[in-house]
C-alpha cells in the first residue's frame, strides 16, 4: 500500500512525523480516513479516537481532540489541540475527571457556560478512557 508523509503537531509539541498508510479520525462531520494522494482538503477535528496505520501496517491509536486537519499538495497535517497516544494516556486521571464532571453535571443550578464546560470535560475523559487499552465502549467500532 502506498504511503504518505503525515505530520501531527499538537499544542504541547511535535508529536509525530513520518510515513503512514492511512489515518482515521473523527471530524466534526463524522469519521474520515485519509489515504495517499488525497485531494486538497480541510476540515475541523471533533473528539474521538484516531487510528494511524504505519508504514509497516501496525496500528497506533490516540485520543485526538479539537484542531484541524489539512491536506495541501500531498502534505497531510493534523493540528490537534490534544493528541495522546493510547499508551500514554493517564487512565486514572481520565477516570477521576469523568467522575468529577459527572458529579458537576448533577447540579441542576449549573449555569449554561459551566454546563458546556463540564460536558466537554466529560466527553474528553470518555474519549481518553475509550482510547486507552482495548475496551471499545467508546471507540470507533
Amino acid at each position: 500500500m502506498s504511503t504518505y508523509h503525515l505530520q501531527v503537531v499538537s499544542m504541547d509539541g511535535d508529536v509525530f512525523e513520518g510515513e503512514v498508510q492511512k489515518i482515521l479520525l473523527r471530524t466534526i462531520d463524522g469519521d474520515v480516513e485519509i489515504l495517499a494522494r488525497h485531494t486538497d482538503y480541510c476540515t475541523a477535528i471533533g473528539m474521538g479516537t484516531a487510528r494511524v496505520t504505519m508504514e509497516d501496517g501496525t496500528v497506533r491509536k490516540a485520543a485526538c481532540i479539537g484542531g484541524m486537519l489539512s491536506v495541501l499538495n500531498g502534505a497531510v497535517r493534523v493540528l490537534p489541540t490534544t493528541w495522546e497516544w493510547s499508551e500514554e494516556i493517564d487512565i486514572e486521571r481520565a477516570k477521576a475527571a469523568k467522575a468529577k464532571a459527572e458529579e458537576r453535571l448533577k447540579d441542576q443550578q449549573l449555569d449554561k457556560e459551566a454546563r458546556i464546560r463540564a460536558e466537554a470535560k466529560l466527553y474528553r475523559a470518555l474519549v481518553r478512557i475509550g482510547t486507552h487499552g482495548q475496551n471499545e465502549k467508546f471507540g470507533n467500532e
Binding site: D29, D40, Y41, C42, T43, A44, G67, M68, T81
Partner: peptide, 21 residues
C-alpha cells in the same frame, strides 16, 4: 480545497482553536 462539511463551518470551528493555540 475541499472543505467538509463546508468552509464556513470549518472556519467557524477552527478559528477559535487557532487563536487559542
Amino acid at each position: 480545497i475541499l472543505y467538509e462539511p463546508d468552509s464556513e463551518t470549518v472556519f467557524n470551528a477552527v478559528v477559535p482553536e487557532y487563536l487559542a493555540g
